[in-house]
Design a protein around this nucleic acid. Structure first.
Lengths: 128, 128
DNA sequence: TTCTTTCTCAACCGATTGGTTGAGTTCGAG
DNA sequence: CTCGAACTCAACCAATCGGTTGAGAAAGAA
């Protein structure tokens, strides 16, 4: 599995998103992080391992404790991917809108339609 | 499973991200979308169902064809979540930085350090 | 040393995932 | 009406997921 898939998958769970949210307030030990949840400590430890494999989190060691640290910069590639594709979809929508406006103009002023090579050879419908 | 988890999970797969990427260029039928992949048509159809359940995509019907349309605005909640938490982590980092600068200032002008309880209690060396 | 806390590892469980094949269904074309 | 194209549905499979319990390991405290 690639890196981007691992990070998306890591955040596709409410518990893990909650863990990330809490870690924005600062590092915390596994036990501290596990305390609020109904599930076992081991379950939370597993969730943290998933976040760690995705690179979203690192564990330091301090005696028995293993303070967890958020690596927030790993969120960037996801944001980038989302922004790029949202923008592409948006751009296409803009172009489509322009085309529709063009058609509407032709409807409003049919005299300008005389420049068309052939009235029923609708070039716009042919793309796609 | 909640909405945000479904959208994150939907994008946690390279094939599905690729489908979304191609749909930014415009609607396409299931067969058109499936063509480039080594897997079966049914497998791609399943991927599209996952995207549909996540709300990322809708299917229109046109005779036998089922043109798929990208609903790009559904990407926004993910971007929002990521931005909010990246920002929180960043803000905390700024505050921490300010604290460290404050400590560094105490080092630079030791006269002000008279307020310290004990001089050899080196607080700076203890982190990392 | 022994006790306790903190955490990981391993085995297990039921549900879900990502793929397969095979059998329909729907609908236009000949 | 029949044929083929475009899909969906259903059953199956191996692998992964999200949880459990139980058994350590590691390290400070008594």
């Amino acid at each position: 599995m690639d890196q981007l898939s691992r990070t998306f998958a890591a955040l596709a769970d409410p518990t893990r998103r909650d863990l990330v949210a809490r870690l924005t307030a600062g590092d915390a030990s596994v036990a501290e992080l596990a305390a609020p949840y109904a599930m076992s400590l081991q379950a939370v430890s597993k969730h943290l391992s998933v976040l760690e494999r995705a690179g979203l989190v690192t564990k330091r060691r301090d005696a028995q404790r293993r303070p967890v640290h958020l690596e927030a910069e790993v969120l960037a590639p996801m944001t980038d991917w989302l922004e790029v594709h949202r923008r592409r979809a948006e751009e296409r929508y803009q172009r489509l809108d322009a085309v529709l406006n063009e058609l509407a103009a032709d409807e409003a002023y049919p005299a300008t339609a005389a420049s068309r090579p052939s009235p029923d050879n609708q070039t716009l419908g042919s793309r796609e």
